[in-house]
Design a protein around this nucleic acid. Structure first.
Lengths: 236, 236
DNA sequence: GCCCCTTCGTGACAAAAGTCATCGGCATGG
DNA sequence: CCATGCCGATGACTTTTGTCACGAAGGGGC
């Protein structure tokens, strides 16, 4: 009996997912046989906030955006996740609905694992449950961080720290400073730091006027890193 | 060999903790022998944000307050937990430091379980890990709820929804409406809804002026429940 | 090239949030 | 009984945030 090719691909992907690392070959196959690959076009919804939770997803390729949206149309991004990340690990266990919405940012392939299969796996392999707890821990820290920023800081602060996080992660050193690429639109950036398009635009301009940045389309060069850093840890 | 009395008490407490429900008698004893009771006076710190995490706590009696504090002295309460709640379940697994601070609100007794003991327990009893995931799920939902409120709503909204939550939980019907008791001080209330003392005071007065409430010291009677409810789900 | 659509930047406002200072009540403790 | 200190209320003011409206820039698609 031969294993379909798509299942083999699943297996290879699964082995790279943090929460499944440590499983044996045969266990991965077991899981791969039960994981359903689903393809999403850029912008397509994976699930919406409030829908009943049927299982968890693992990102195989592409990126997803986890966010809340308000009645008035504003959005707050909670997390962006790429290959290897699992999403909705938690609602699987507490039986509630999905607490936030998820869409694909670019074309993406996700593996779907049903609640039942996953719970069975956790019971059979306690290490998996511990791994899940670990990634959930990271998620919780991020959420607490967002709360902290929203509760204590201004849009200006949040923008500065967003830029610095970007610089940390994917910044390239150039002659004039550290070069980073902004999210697709200011609207999107606003959803990350919990505000609206206009304030992002204004605050970016202001930081540039103050000589910390140099903006060129979606590319920003941080020319005065020190000043920008001073911005985030000084209350004034 | 006799079991010390304090250990027996621990065992009785532990049986009532959600994450430990389902353990057998002997397993509870095993855990009780390793749990260390610690007493805290009202206001005393249990641990501070950023401290390395050595284990988790279970609330035996009293209440604790989980919160973040800012450089400028403001605080944001993340959760209030009472008997039966476990706290800091998560940092135990991801190896990081405590993400927030915890103090006792009133005189309290907590049971401390070391990281090692707890991890061993989870490995030996996968159901425990699943239970942990469940309570953590609830915690995550609460955090996402806080983010949603901070990001999308005004102080007025947050105050209204705080009052309604209080009414839901501990409200007593009286002639004039639903009667609730506010937190000890406006400062404390402010920390719950992410603002400052003055705004709480002003907004409470305003709600009273508009006829929704009747304030008498720390007691509030919600005289127009409908209106207050309308406040929270209308964007205006 | 030309239209259509989106996004950006901005000015002008309006509303909300936060700061500062003051006053008055109330409890505590000498 | 008075002094002291904490807390609540409130007025005056500043800063921040958010809204609305508009014009300019750019990128497809036809």
């Amino acid at each position: 009996m031969s294993v379909p090719e798509s299942k083999v691909t699943c297996g290879q992907t699964l082995a790279k997912v943090p929460i499944f690392s440590g499983l044996t070959e045969s266990e991965l196959v077991f899981l791969a046989e039960r994981a359903v690959p689903r393809r999403y076009a850029a912008g397509e919804s994976v699930f919406g906030e409030g829908e009943p939770c049927s299982g968890l997803y693992v990102v195989e390729s592409g990126h997803v955006r986890i966010f809340k949206s308000s009645a008035s149309g504003r959005e707050q991004v909670l997390s962006i996740d790429g290959p290897g990340s699992s999403i909705a690990e938690l609602p699987v266990f507490d039986g509630g609905n999905y607490p936030a919405s998820v869409t694909a940012i670019d074309d993406a392939t996700l593996l779907f694992v049903s609640k039942q299969d996953f719970q069975a796996l956790c019971l059979a392999h306690p290490q998996v449950a511990l791994k899940v707890l670990r990634v959930v821990g990271a998620r919780l820290r991020r959420l607490v961080g967002i709360i902290e920023e929203l509760s204590f800081t201004t849009v200006r602060h949040r923008l500065a720290s967003f830029l610095l996080r970007l610089a940390q992660k994917e910044g390239k050193r150039s002659a004039a400073g550290v070069e980073i690429t902004l999210p697709a639109s200011n609207q999107e950036l606003a959803a990350h730091i919990g505000t609206v398009r206009e304030l992002v635009s204004r605050n970016l301009s202001r930081l540039q006027a103050e000589g910390m940045l140099q903006i060129d389309g979606r590319t920003v060069t941080i020319s005065n890193l020190k000043a920008l850093e001073a911005e985030i840890d000084s209350p004034e």
